[in-house]
Amino acid sequence: MVEPVLVWRRLVGAQIRSQFQYRLSFTIDLIGNFLISFIDFLAVLVIFHNVTQLGTWRVREVAFLYAFSSISFALTDLLIGHLDQFPQKIRDGTFDILLVRPRSTLFQVIGSDFQLRRLGKATQGAIVLAYVVGALDIPWDAGRVAMLIVMVPSAIVIFGSVWVVGSCLAFWTTDGGEFTNAFTYGGNFMSQYPVDILSTWLRRFLAYVVPLAFVCYFPALYILGKPDPLGLPRAVDFLSPLVAVGAAAVASVAWRFAVRHYRSAGG
């Protein structure tokens, strides 16, 4: 278990050192990532310029969802966002190389293109979170602190699993990588807002089947002390870590199944 982590650290460390060689480029990239992630937050502010509540949610509560979703998504993107470029390996057949090396293929794909500049997006979410937590006046008790600690890792695992499952499609449709975007970028977009405002069928599909409601919505209900507008029992708020484990298991099975269907393009 320890050994892959060490290998990953060496791989990523080497990539970070190389990115620091082009310091100006790196800085501009970091700022660019920071700026572009503001767009989604501006959208939230524009909505609340027109209404004081969205369903039962006030602006600070939605900002809380927004901040958590964008931090978790940005960190997922930092760790495995380069899965978006991985269909190229299938298209040109270079995936063959990964198959003959003595590490799991998923591990190799994930360790192959770490871009530290993506940290810019997480910074923006962290700033919003710091402001909102200060403004919301949450009665922090042991339960809430525990939830705060487990929710980001759970969210990252859920987002990451969705990303991996989506990427598996590339083994069948080499140029259909954008399917994944509906669930990754679309999932992030959805998680920034309360799921109870979605229509029933879309909520069932995106929030429960693709378990995106467990990324932020349920943990946030608990931390904010809000009753669920949909009337689900409070116990559901604590399921995120379990859902994360389940999602990771599904992703792992899906990836292995997909790799067995790989037909080389002869790279």
């Binding site: 449709t173 080499t174 954008e178 975007n181 669930f183 679309g186 977009f189 995106l206």
Partner: peptide, 23 residues
């Protein structure tokens, strides 16, 4: 396939945004 995937993604985004603004 890229076109089909894009259509699917645009549709999902459309639904999410439509319900947010309907609220």
């Amino acid at each position: 396939w890229a076109t089909a995937a894009g259509v699917f993604t645009n549709t999902i985004f459309g639904f999410i945004q439509a319900y947010i603004l309907l609220a």
